[in-house]
Computed example of a mutant assay.
Amino acid sequence: MAYTSNGAAIEADEEGYLTDINQWNEDLAGQIAKDEGITMTPEHWEVVNFLREYYSEYQIAPAVRVLTKAIAKKMGPDKGNNKYLYELFPYGPGKQACKIAGLPKPTGCV
């Protein structure tokens, strides 16, 4: 599977996760989101950017429980809860948001 961004083919695995996270850019994120049926809002970007920062620091994509706690710590309980995150990413905030963020599939995600 591959996405096209700025005229270049960007490789992804069979589930749509980028094979090289360094090829990620915001245009590509928007395209992946569209494929996932998501229209990106500032709230979506907030989670995607948080995930990219988290990955940059820890070299791992957080599972949903870890993600929820980390977001609650940084952005408050209104955003750091499953209900809010699932409203943004209905197919799973860990799995779907990581895909849009160009990160590997989180460990523990089926």
Rank of each mutant, 00 (worst) to 15 (best):
P42L: 06
V110H: 14
L28R: 09
D35M: 01
I38E: 07
L85R: 03
Y17Q: 02
L67K: 12
M1I: 08
L88H: 12
C109M: 07
V64L: 07
V64Q: 10
A12H: 06
R52F: 10
K79F: 14
G16S: 04
I100C: 06
P90A: 03
V66I: 14
G108E: 11
K99D: 08
G102Y: 02
T68S: 11
P77E: 15
H44K: 05
Y3F: 10
L103I: 10
M1D: 11
Q59A: 13
A72N: 12
V110Q: 07
E43S: 14
T19N: 00
L67I: 10
A63S: 05
T39N: 12
Y55R: 05
C109D: 14
Y3L: 00
G76V: 10
M1C: 04
K34R: 11
E36H: 02
F50R: 04
Y55M: 02
K34N: 11
L28D: 05
I60Y: 08
G16Y: 07
L67S: 13
T4K: 02
Y17C: 01
N25Y: 06
Y55T: 03
Y54N: 06
G16Q: 07
G80R: 08
G7Q: 03
A70G: 13
I21S: 08
K74N: 08
N82G: 11
K79P: 09
Q59F: 06
E15A: 12
T19V: 09
F50P: 09
K73W: 02
N49D: 13
M1Y: 11
T39L: 08
A63T: 00
L88S: 09
L88C: 13
A101V: 05
G92L: 02
K95D: 15
T4E: 14
K105E: 08
T68L: 03
D78K: 15
K105H: 07
T4N: 03
G76T: 12
C109R: 09
Y3K: 00
D78P: 02
I10C: 09
Q31H: 07
W24Q: 08
F50A: 05
L28T: 09
Y91D: 07
D78S: 15
A101P: 11
A2W: 03
G30K: 15
I60E: 14
N82Q: 05
G92W: 03
D20Q: 03
L103C: 13
I100L: 03
